[in-house]
Every structure is written in structure tokens, then in C-alpha cells.
Design a protein around this nucleic acid. Sequence first.
DNA 1: ACCTGAACACCGTTCAAGT
DNA 2: ACCTGAACACCGTTCAAGT
Lengths: 253, 253
Amino acid sequence: MNRPTSADGAVREVRVREARVREPLDRRRILTAAIQLIDEDGLRRLTMRRLGAHLGVEAMALYHHVPGREDLLDGVVESVVDELYDDPEVYLEATDWQEYLQRLSHGLRRIALKHPKVFPLLATRPPAAPWLHPPLRSLRWTESFLTTLRACGFDDRAAVAAYRAFSSFLLGHLLLEVAGLDAQITPLDEPDETATPAGTDLSEYPVIDRLSGALAEDRSAEEFEDALEQLLDRLQLLSEDAAERDHHAGQGR
Amino acid sequence: MNRPTSADGAVREVRVREARVREPLDRRRILTAAIQLIDEDGLRRLTMRRLGAHLGVEAMALYHHVPGREDLLDGVVESVVDELYDDPEVYLEATDWQEYLQRLSHGLRRIALKHPKVFPLLATRPPAAPWLHPPLRSLRWTESFLTTLRACGFDDRAAVAAYRAFSSFLLGHLLLEVAGLDAQITPLDEPDETATPAGTDLSEYPVIDRLSGALAEDRSAEEFEDALEQLLDRLQLLSEDAAERDHHAGQGR
DNA sequence: ACCTGAACACCGTTCAAGT
DNA sequence: ACCTGAACACCGTTCAAGT
């Protein structure tokens, strides 16, 4: 009965193993858990206390790794945008700026559809700087965007205009699309009587009534493609304007 | 000392006058106060208790007129959209659908700029029905939109496509614009050293650094006009497609 | 009829204390 | 070094009680 060291060793080993199972709780692990909780239950239910419980820890432990809830949400936004870096489709070599923007757009759309309950956060959090537009809001991607377009015949003015047009395109289309996902869930259990969501009487709105089927139809994917094509056409014009400005500047010299 | 009836009358009169000063608290008065509080302090600080205090009443009194905070926010959204009805510019008779959409767009832009802290709510609250798209989200305006376009040569399909395109245009441009207003307020007091918001080192992002002035410049008004013109051109094409479909249908008969 | 007091369950956050 | 207990100020909401 005198193998105290051996017993101690066993206890310590169990502790170490436990520590490996619920790892030492850093910022990245907290952010990952936060994103998962929002995906599952929505932003409203993401609570410091619930998040702590989900990580097997008291809420107060989180404050050793994250300054507070607001900063946590900023971190969530940053993490989700950073998923673009792990998307191999986005990183394929592009032969022109059109292809570059197509890959970037589709990458961000995949993110929006993967995290529909997080996306409104990308859309509406106050930007850290006036030159970081939602929903991209990343210094690295903004730099990449501007550099690429500058290298493809856009002058400064055209590149900046393109950045704003691109941002508002993504914002409008993706937010409308994820809003549509939220709307599908009818608040009452009543399992669709002509999919009329509980208590809406359309008799005063004959045109909506007649078109409600067409309006509820989800053509998001095609509409996204169409609108993206049209955006690229508009940007093409911007770059041609830039070329013309360059031409005149050359003549003026 | 025996004019009890008279004294009673005086007391009652005072009560009535008080009641007129802080009126009897109905839903409309609560919503107006809520909008005012959001405009001034932001959504985060709109609290049932603060709202009650602002109206000279305990928080619990609000629950006699409003089912709860979520419903209150829905009411705020509805009220703000309803301000379109009080905008004389929107109600001027339009000679064609282009002018109708211009008035409607500018009306909604005025609302967004008047209530920049409320607008994200119009953009992101889950719609009540799948055919109500943000940011318009009003049965009456959606009906009006569809009716007008149907009367101007758009068939059902074109009108529905136009409604979605119009919604995502407004959503993208106006949300980007109000996000820009939020971004201007630098979190630190430091009164602009090249307007670099506190702690952002742009040395690794040379293109952003060079273009930061141009990026921060606010050309929202012109960009809104340009993008609106381009949207109207695209919708014109939709209506021409509709006319062609109609023509073929006539031939097929 | 309309509002209030008191209470409940739950927030975010601080800080001294534990191991 | 990392986490916890207890506490503080503040939420939304319910309900019996006041006038």
C-alpha cells in the first residue's frame, strides 16, 4: 500500500488527458464555438454564459481571452470573412479581373449561405475604417481587390469606384438571399395553407396575391449570376473610361 | 370650508390637464419615442426600461400596449417605412414607371439618411413573408410597385424580377451609405491624423494607403444616381423582353 | 382602465480568491 | 497561469395589487 508516487502519477496523467480533451481555451477556439452557436441558434442566443457552458467553462473564463462581447462579435465577423482564405476556388489563378471577381463573389456567396445567421453581422457591423466596406471588410482582401484591378487597366479612380460598386452588389444580393432563408420559416406550426404566413390577408392586395407564388420562388442563384454579369459589364465601362483618361493624359504631356 | 364638490372638481381638472400633458400612452406614441431613442443613442441602448423612463412611465406599463420588445422593433420598422406616405415627393404623379421608381428610391434614401441607426433594422429583420423583400417590406408598397409596373408593359415575370432587382439595389446602396456614416465616427478622440482610425498600420497595404483618401471620400449621392440610372436601363430591357414574349404569344394564338 | 411593485430568470462584466 | 465564486448593475417579462 505504499506506492504514493505511482498513484500521484496516475492522477496527473488523467489530468493531462482531460486537459487535452478540453483544450486550454484560446481566442480561436472561442470564436469557432461562437460561430457554431450562432449558426445553430441565432445571434440573439449567443451569450457569454451559454458560450462558456458550450466550452465547458464558466462565462468569466472567456474574459481572459476576449475583451468582451462586442469584440467577440468583431472577431466572429473577421473569422468568417477569413474563411475565404481556405476556399480553394477563390485561390485558383485567374486569367483576368473578370474571373478574379467571379471567384471572389462566389466565394463570399458560399460563406453567406454557409452562415446565413452570421451574414447580417458582416453587413451591418460598423466598419473599422471608412475605406473598409461591408461585406468584405478585410484589409487584405481590399488590398488584393485594388491591386488586381490596378494591374488590369483600372486607374485609381476606376478601381475605387469598382470597389464600391462591387461591395454594394454583394451586400444587396446576399443580404436579400439570406433574408429569404429566414422568411421561409413560418412562425406558426400551421403547415402551409398556400404558404400564407399566419394571419396575412391578401384580399386587399390582389397583385401580390396573384404573384405570391412567383414572388416566393427562389431564383437567387440565377439572379446572382445575371446581376454579376451586368456588374462586370459596368466595370468594363469604368476601365475603358480609365483608358481614355490615360490616353488624354498622354496627349496632354 | 364646505365646498367639497368644488374641491373635488378642481382636483379632477388638474388630473385631466396632467393626463393631456403626458397623453394616455398608446402604441403610436411608444413607437415614436422608440424611433427617437434609436436615432439618438443607437439600437443597443433602446431598452424597455429606458423607453418607459423616456415616456415618464414604468417599463411594465409598455406591455399593456405592445406585446414585447421584438414586436416593438417590428413596429419601429413598419413606422419608419410608413414615413414614405408622408413624403410629398413620393406622391407626386409620375408620368412613367421610371419616374415612379426614381421618386420611390429617393424617398427611401431620405428615410435611410434620416434614420441611419434604424435602417439596418429594415435591412435585416426577418421578413414577415417570403414575398416581402427588405428594405421596402410593406404590403402596400409592394402592391403599388407591382401594379405600376404591370400597367407599364411589364408582364408578371418581368415585374417580379424588377421587384427583386430594385430591392437588392436599395439594400446594397443604402446599407453601404449608412455604414459609412457609422464609420466616420472614430472610436478614439484623436482628431484625425490623416484620418487613420487608431492603430491601423497601413504600411503593409500600400494600395489602400495610397487610395485611402479617395476611398474615404463620400460620393454616395452621385453613385446612387448613377446606379439608379443603370438599374432603370436594366429594367427597361426586362420590359422589352416582356413585350417580345407578348408578341410571340399573340402570334401563337 | 390603466399603471405600479415586487419578483423571476437571465444578461455582461469586475475583481478578489482559489488551484 | 488559468479559472471560479460572488457580486453588481442592468435586462425582458409576469402577475397580483393598487388607484
